[in-house]
Each structure stands twice: as C-alpha cells, then as structure tokens.
C-alpha cells in the first residue's frame, strides 16, 4: 500500500526539479525568511544568540508560500488530463493524495533545512540553546505538513489555481491568527470559553511550544491530526470529483 504512494512521491519530487518551481520556491523562501529575520526581526540588534526572530516569522512565510506549492497539485493533473491516467492505474485515491503530500512535505523540509546558515551564524556569535533550535525545526516541519495538507484538500476541491491559492492562504491564516494575542484578547471580551477553544485549535501556540524547546506528545498529536484530517478530506474530494 505504501509502495505506490512512494513511487508517486518520487515522480512528483522529480517534477518539482524538472521545472523552475523548485529553485524559485527555495530562493524566494530563503530571501523572505532572511529579510524578515534580519530586518524586521532585528536579528543582530537584539544581542541574543537565539533564533526567536527566525521562528517568529517562519509561520507567516510558510503561510504565503505553501499554498503556492499546493495549488497546482491537482489543477495541473486536471488541465493536462493526466488525472485520468493516474486514477485509472491500480492505486487508490488515498495513495495518490499521500504520494503528492509526501513529495511536497519532503520538498518543504529541504527548504526549511536550507536555512541552516542561521543556525551556524548564532552558534558563531554566541552559545544558543541548540536543543530549542532543533525542537523549533521539528515544529516548523510539522507546521509545514499541516499547511500542506490544507492546501492539498483545497487544490483537490477546485479546478482553478487562483481560487485554490487564495482559499488555502485564508484557511492557514485563520488557523495561525486564531492563536495570536490580538485575536485572543478580542475573543476573551466576547466569550472566554470561545477564546479558549479557538486557542486550542490554533497552530500558533503549538508551534511556539516547539520553538521554546518543548516537544510535547499532545502538540505532535495535534499536527498529526490536522494532517490526517485534511488528507482524508482531500482523498474524499479526489474520489468524488475525479472526473470533473
């Protein structure tokens, strides 16, 4: 069962690098992440050897770039007609969805790992808590997985790449913004219970736990559930809407 998904993932992975998508994505990701960390995040002025500004901006950069990666996942198959070929091979829709997700996730992991010069820099400048940094990276990869699964479901649901992109950005934004202080304060005034629930559903607090060096089972479980839920949704949509 896993075999076909891996074969599909390998094909997708090769397709990223057969087009300029891979290079453009990685260059823009590193440029944005660098600019925000150094300029907006005052990386040097803070006089602290840690990656707090780096991890503060990372979710927002992923929020913008990951939907650009996922929007073509199914739209491209539909446009070229290859969806008919793929879904009449002896595989299940789940294997196709999982394969595409694994390729995208591996690709995002590569992009995130390519930020290693930041880690080298803080280690050169001082003595950071490398455990916390490693945990932050684990959190970043899980966060990317969550965003990718949301993007996959929305890409399966619409033929239109622009719509898939905008909806995915909006959905990821809601999930991220729901945990910010501004939204929390606003909701607390309306209803403390609601504020609590929204905060629980948000990715922001979960991700911040990782960046503080805490890898808690319930946070890992949270991201695993988000990924599983949206991939399940994507599978249903692909199964139902395959011929449209």
């Amino acid at each position: 069962m896993m075999g076909s998904a891996v074969i599909i993932a390998r094909r997708e992975w090769a397709a990223y690098f057969a087009s300029p998508v891979a290079v453009v994505f990685i260059v823009i990701f590193l440029a944005m992440q660098g600019a925000l960390t150094f300029n907006a995040g005052h990386f040097f002025d803070r006089d602290q050897a840690d990656l707090v500004p780096f991890f503060t901006y990372l979710p927002w950069v992923l929020l913008l770039l990951i939907p650009a990666l996922t929007m073509r996942q199914w739209a491209e198959e539909r446009r070229g007609g290859s969806i008919e070929l793929l879904l009449t091979l002896p595989i299940t829709p789940w294997q196709a969805v999982l394969g595409k997700f694994l390729a995208a996730w591996a690709f995002c992991t590569l992009a995130i790992l390519l930020t290693f010069p930041f880690v080298v820099t803080v280690n050169y400048l001082g003595h950071p808590d490398n455990g916390a940094i490693a945990a932050g990276y684990v959190g970043a990869v899980l966060l990317a997985g969550g965003f990718l699964s949301i993007g996959a479901a929305l890409s399966a649901a619409t033929k239109n790449q622009v719509i898939a992109f905008v909806l995915a950005v909006a959905a990821c934004f809601l999930l991220l913004a729901a945990g910010t202080a501004t939204v929390s304060e606003l909701l607390t005034r309306l209803s403390p219970d609601l504020a609590h629930i929204v905060r629980l559903a948000s990715v922001a607090d979960r991700f911040n736990n990782f960046t503080r060096g805490v890898i808690a089972a319930r946070d890992v479980l949270y991201f695993a559930s988000v990924i599983a839920f949206f991939l399940f949704l994507a599978t249903l949509v692909v199964g139902e809407k395959r011929a449209e």
Binding site: A14, G80, T88
Partner: peptide
C-alpha cells in the same frame, strides 16, 4: 486493464522512458 484515455494524456515533463518506468513501477 490497460487503458488509453482519450487524447493519450501523460506526464509531459517526463521523458518517454522515465514515464514508462513510472507506470511500470506502479504496476
């Protein structure tokens, strides 16, 4: 089943042999 869909869709960014190898692996 061997199925040739209308218009013979394929992954156009692949070479003929890479594409056939992909299909073979899935099979």
């Amino acid at each position: 089943l061997g199925y040739l869909p209308e218009g013979a869709p394929a992954y156009r960014d692949m070479s003929v042999s890479d594409f056939l190898r992909f299909i073979g692996r899935i099979r």
